[in-house]
């Protein structure tokens, strides 16, 4: 079976990447007469986070095509039961998903566990692409700052970087959003 179109969007905090991703999803939905599915990975951890999620929800309410929302902090393949080959899935965001998968279980961050999480996320993306029409993934840029061996930041940065490389390698389109301006890197 043919895999869904894959679009990767990254950028810094508050760069406007989520908004751009929503616009992109809508464009694609109008083009293909598809349905929009928002896959939220964030947990409401404090008031600010709640406010941020509400603002994005409000944005989606004004969309000419209605969004269906699913919230899965981990195991995102669960959304597969709700989508079809006309669905445009917007996954927001990969870094939160990685956080949840890595730190949610409380397991020690040993090599085997890290590899299994990486394989799980890549596998989930693959699976969702076989069940939908288009998958748009939003993520955060890896910090470009001194990283020290054996530190958590090192483990985390390497994992996220590797996952990003795999996704960009397979993506039909990839964007880096800077201050609200999307830079097309691939496609």
């Amino acid at each position: 079976m043919e895999k869904a179109r894959l679009c990767f969007i990254t950028g810094g905090v508050r760069s406007g990447k989520s908004r751009f991703a929503e616009r992109k999803a809508l464009e694609y939905a109008l083009l293909t007469e598809g349905n929009l599915h928002y896959l939220a990975c964030g947990r409401v951890s404090d008031a600010e986070m709640g406010e941020r999620i509400l603002r994005h929800q409000k944005d989606r309410q004004t969309s000419p095509i209605a969004w269906q929302t699913s919230e899965y902090a981990t195991d995102i393949t669960r959304v597969g039961a709700k989508v079809d080959s006309n669905s445009i899935i917007l996954l927001d965001c990969l870094t939160t998903l990685l956080d949840n998968e890595l730190f949610g279980s409380g397991l020690p961050l040993e090599a085997n566990f890290l590899h299994s999480i990486q394989a799980k996320i890549i596998g989930a993306i693959d699976e969702l692409r076989q069940q939908s029409g288009c998958l748009i993934i939003v993520s955060n840029e890896v910090a470009q700052e001194p990283i020290f061996q054996k530190q958590l930041l090192h483990i985390y940065g390497r994992m996220l970087g590797t996952i990003h490389q795999t996704i960009v390698g397979e993506a039909d389109e990839a964007y880096l959003v800077e201050s609200g301006i999307p830079l097309k890197m691939k496609g």
Partner: peptide
């Protein structure tokens, strides 16, 4: 480029 971006590859 940033660390873990696949520069060597």
């Amino acid at each position: 480029g940033g660390a873990y971006n696949g520069k060597s590859n």
